[in-house]
Amino acid sequence: MFHLFSNILTSYGTAANNRGENEGNVTPLQKLDWKGEVYTTVSSEAIRWALRYSWQNVGYAVNRRWDENAQPVADHVWQDLNFDDIRFIDDDVLGFMQAEAAKMEASDESGGDAEEVSQDDNKKNSKGKDEQTSRRKGKQKPKGKITARRGVLEVTRAISTIPYSGNITFNSASGLKGRNSLYATEIHATRYQYGFALTPNSLKDKSRILAVLDGLISIGEVAGNHARFLYDFSPESIVMRWTHDSSPRFLYCFEEDELRNITVPDLVRRVEAGDIDPKELWIGGAISKTLEDLGANVFPGVKAVVEALKQVIAEDLQLALRS
């Protein structure tokens, strides 16, 4: 069984969030403690949103369509609330879940299954008592219904390659007066890295793995509703692994030094140690210049390496289908 793993490094840019309509006067970035320092982060849900939106823009059938013209604010519009992982690519790749509350019967709502036993009842013969207890235990509480499919595509949080230094700008909303007309925005000039994993055998349509690759190397804005700043989230460098190994072994492999040089020392160490077969690696973009002697499949461009790997994936899936 084949698995596809990847670690993506974005271009250098300025990350910031716009305010929502009901938010206060500070627009913070998400942060986490990483390697003993504070780094900024972008959620995997934001990346998945951007992937679905990229599919929508190129014409794939998606169940959860983004409507920028919805009122009062932009929102998703469902095409089929019953879901369809054959028809819709996002239902197949990203999964879904709908939970319905239990439907109570009239007798249940009136407490018919929980009536108390009086002292007179306790005086009845043991046979009658056993019959009454049996009736109460035999009535089961109604259960809710869950319609769900686990997402096949797994995406990590994106983490900045350098710590957050606390940059903040102060702004005013033109033409407005009020407690929110003056506001502050946190800004982080950085790159981000994140990883993903996908097992095509778990897809209803295995060929959709190719659409996943196309989408992830083409996404731009990542935060959806209120984060309308332009930050290029497409890869500057990408490392992919097409393998029978069920573990990626190289997530968050990019490191940036004080001179802004990008290296992948842990990836190199794992290849040299024999934990990763270099022939399983497909590397493209800026990082490829330093890894030409690694023994991997190295390409100068991100699109070129993805197209080459897509051909290999398609051939391997066809061979598996025949066998």
Rank of each mutant, 00 (worst) to 15 (best):
T10H: 02
Y12N: 12
Y12W: 13
G13Q: 05
E21A: 11
G24V: 07
T27C: 13
L29M: 01
W34S: 01
S44P: 10
W49L: 11
L51Y: 04
R52H: 03
N57S: 10
V58L: 04
Y60G: 01
N63Y: 07
H76F: 11
D80H: 07
L81T: 08
F83Q: 07
F83A: 11
I86T: 06
R87S: 05
F88H: 02
I89V: 14
D90T: 12
D92M: 05
M97L: 06
E105M: 10
A106H: 15
S110W: 02
S110T: 06
S110I: 07
A114I: 06
E116A: 15
V117E: 04
Q119P: 00
K124L: 03
N125G: 03
K127W: 07
K137L: 10
K139N: 11
A148S: 15
R150N: 14
L153I: 00
Y164T: 02
I168Q: 03
F170V: 11
S172T: 15
S172G: 09
K177G: 09
K177F: 10
L182R: 10
Y183N: 06
G195F: 03
F196D: 06
A211N: 14
V212T: 05
V212I: 09
L216Y: 09
V222E: 00
Y231S: 08
D232V: 11
H244D: 10
D257N: 14
L259Q: 15
I262Q: 12
I287N: 05
L291D: 03
N297G: 14
V298D: 02
P300I: 10
K303S: 15
A304V: 06
Q311R: 10
I313Q: 01
D316I: 07
L319R: 14
S323T: 14
